[in-house]
Write a protein that binds this DNA or RNA. Structure first.
Length: 272
DNA sequence: CCGAACCTGTGT
DNA sequence: ACACAGGTTCGG
């Protein structure tokens, strides 16, 4: 699913296109993806959007917020009234913009791992999931703190990058890409990395996440943005999903290995 | 801490 | 038919 850059892209599109719209109606086709009181947002105006790691939060004027986690296959799609809903649409929001036609925002999710949680805005930061998140790699996390996280962990560095309690927002794609950029093998125990490697990785995490956001995220498979469009970052993958294809640095075939039960892509020669 | 589970779709 | 999928949570 969407990782930090994909969620950030949707967040920015909500700020650009939905702020000021009134929530005029909500239709629910499956209630098992919903937590909290759906009707609490009726009649409120969307005031902004925030992101906590991979969690999207949409705030409204009645101090009710929607926390949306898209997990693997969740989508939010903006549509004109009358268009066919995307497959596996579970919730539809009817929005009234200030001076145009009513619009729909559909929450769809084939696998139904994702969810929408309606709750008071003040309660968002008390959610166990939000409280448990580590620092934001593009905001709060410092190089020093990152070095400390590495030094304290014996686990494979890739597992550390994916641990949302340590660092919030990195997923499988950006972990693989940042490690390739840093010439670091994903299975390397975090604490045996040299200081130089830690610093390179820290810089490359920022680089891949920033480039991901600039390119509108990665649509390797199912990701679509709010407007139904694809991201472009998948066209720039160096390792993710490139099993057997030549490493663009040394032409060794890219390998797929399994670390922590997750498919992991790396160059066995230039990542040490 | 690691594997299994949660679900469905897609590709081999 | 089987392996695999961008994430998180739970249980052993």
């Amino acid at each position: 699913m969407p990782e930090l850059p994909e969620v950030e892209t949707i967040k920015q599109q909500i700020e650009a296109h939905l702020v000021g719209s009134i929530v005029a109606g909500v239709s629910t086709f499956r209630t098992d993806v919903i937590h909290g009181e759906v009707l609490s947002i009726m009649g409120s105006t969307i005031t902004g959007a925030r992101r906590f790691g991979k969690l999207l939060v949409i705030d409204t004027s009645k101090d009710i917020s929607l926390c949306v986690h898209l997990k693997m296959t969740g989508r939010l799609t903006l549509l004109p009234v009358g268009e066919t809903f995307p497959k596996h649409t579970h919730v539809v929001f009817h929005l009234q913009p200030p001076r145009s036609e009513t619009q729909l925002v559909c929450f769809s999710d084939a696998r139904r791992f994702g969810y929408i949680h309606f709750l008071p805005t003040t309660a968002v930061q008390d959610l166990p999931f939000v409280k448990s998140l580590g620092k934001e790699p593009l905001k709060d996390l410092t190089k020093k703190e990152f070095e400390l996280l590495c030094a304290r962990s014996k686990r494979p560095i890739k597992m550390l990058l994916l641990d949302q309690h340590r660092i919030a927002g990195i997923g499988n794609i950006y972990a693989c890409e940042a490690l390739w950029m840093s010439f670091i093998h994903p299975a390397t125990p975090a604490q045996i990395l040299t200081r130089k490697q830690m610093q390179a990785l820290f810089a490359n995490i920022e680089a891949v996440l920033t480039e991901g956001i600039e390119r509108g995220g990665a649509s390797d498979n199912s990701y679509r943005n709010l407007m139904g469009g694809k991201g472009k970052y998948q066209d720039f993958f160096k390792v993710y999903g490139r099993t057997g294809k030549p490493c663009v640095r040394c032409s060794t075939p890219i390998e797929r290995i399994v670390i922590g039960g997750r498919g992991t892509f790396c160059c066995p020669v230039c990542q040490k």
